[in-house]
Design a protein around this nucleic acid. Structure first.
Lengths: 231, 231
DNA sequence: GCAAGCTTGTGAGAACTTTCACAAGCGCGG
DNA sequence: CCGCGCTTGTGAAAGTTCTCACAAGCTTGC
């Protein structure tokens, strides 16, 4: 049994290490990697890499580094990537269709079991090699295919209802792309990806530096106009 | 001048409060809102809302709450949403096309100035009412339209080069959808959205609860087989 | 088999974030 | 104009995350 639980911040970085290690194995064929190098690839610092990996166990060798294959295996086991996860995708609009065709999911073992919509004019269409099904068939599919992860890609007003239907069908984890907060029972995990929020955060920092530049410029002009009195 | 800088964690929540307030104003027409109510809408707790808003200034009224309109204005000002931000979108694949058609960006003042690709068979196509331009025209557009935000929606191997070209063109903030770490000068802000990482994080927590359930089940079976000795 | 050179694993401290709890202050009713 | 009820704003405590720095320990070369 594990002594300490793995901190959330660490969990969020494991997929990054995982991809970095895959890249490394593929491109250089290196069999070991130091925390220093892994840190560079993952865009973090070496101490963080070591601390993070130490939560998984003592998988490194002092003086040498980490065995790439072994570490890959351990991380994939930790992340549950040793099995395939069928996923129910709800919403066949722009975003839903893009997600349905997104290769990155299948590469990590996340198979879209089915794509659902409620709009009769969309149901029956082909999307990413699948036929869009009506949302009413959700429970059926979830039970039959053992789906435990759902993706919400519907307009914000429909998000809460879709979330409830997913939970009711038996889904335990939800990835929500709709720009709306969804409330579910505490035993269901929800993660949110909000595209426009991200841009707003960027514009916050962008505007701040612009504001500073503007203030500096204003100061400069003021100084030119009315130079400070000498003492 | 501001005494304390606004913490990152708070900045990340401001867009959520902003949307919650918009929803509130639109649906109920309420003119004031308490931290309690805003917290419920945003999916956080009231103390956090108050602390967060206190970084912007003292905009509430004790015994009453916050004026919805005024707070909306203050947050939008803080986030830089009082101006429009032209955005350069690089990559006209599945994801790029979906992003180009995404209404949520324009709603918050993020206008796609142009969409770029390097694939000659894609350049010239119509996407979301725009013609895909060649990446070589990037700098021209960035300078002419005063673009300061770029979105990367290209395959992982191309991400670093695109980032460099964006920075070279004069972009100061980047939203990276490619599943790859990009390194840029420290005066450029990068935020990452990694769709498959999010699913991996979900599967971590999912698998953990499954593992616990399995262990519990195993224990149950063991107990049945070999019951504990009575004292 | 020992010393030199690396690199891990981890305590300890710093920094950041969240939560608590309550004084301060506003508005309403009498 | 006073007292009561409500809600903010915020110090202080608790919890989490990051960083530092170094002992522990492995490998290689001689």
């Amino acid at each position: 049994m594990r002594t300490r639980p793995i901190p959330e911040a660490t969990v969020a970085r494991l997929p990054i290490y995982f991809r970095s290690l895959l890249d490394l194995a593929e491109s250089t064929g290196a069999t070991t990697v130091s925390s220093e190098e892994l840190a560079r690839m993952a865009g973090v610092n070496a101490a963080k890499v070591r601390k993070d990996l130490s939560y998984l166990g003592s998988y490194g060798t002092r003086g040498v580094g980490y065995d790439v294959e072994y570490l890959l295996y351990q991380i994939s086991r930790e992340l549950g990537l040793t099995q395939d996860w069928p996923v129910a995708l709800v919403g066949a609009g722009n975003l839903g269709r893009a997600l349905a065709s997104y290769k990155g999911f299948a590469e990590r073992g996340f198979m879209i079991a089915a794509i659902f919509d409620i709009d009769e004019s969309v149901v029956g269409n082909e999307v990413g090699g699948m036929t869009v099904r009506h949302l009413d068939e959700l429970k059926e599919v979830v039970v039959e295919d053992g789906v435990s992860i759902g993706i919400i890609a519907v307009p914000p007003l429909a998000a809460q209802e879709v979330a409830e239907r997913l939970v009711d069908a038996g889904v335990k984890s939800i990835l929500n792309f709709a720009p709306a907060v969804v409330n579910v029972a505490p035993n269901v995990t929800v993660r949110k990806v909000d595209l426009s929020n991200e841009l707003q955060i960027l514009s916050f920092y962008q505007q701040r530096t612009q504001a500073i530049a503007t203030a500096r410029e204003a100061n400069r002009l003021l100084r030119l106009q009315a130079p400070r009195k000498p003492l």
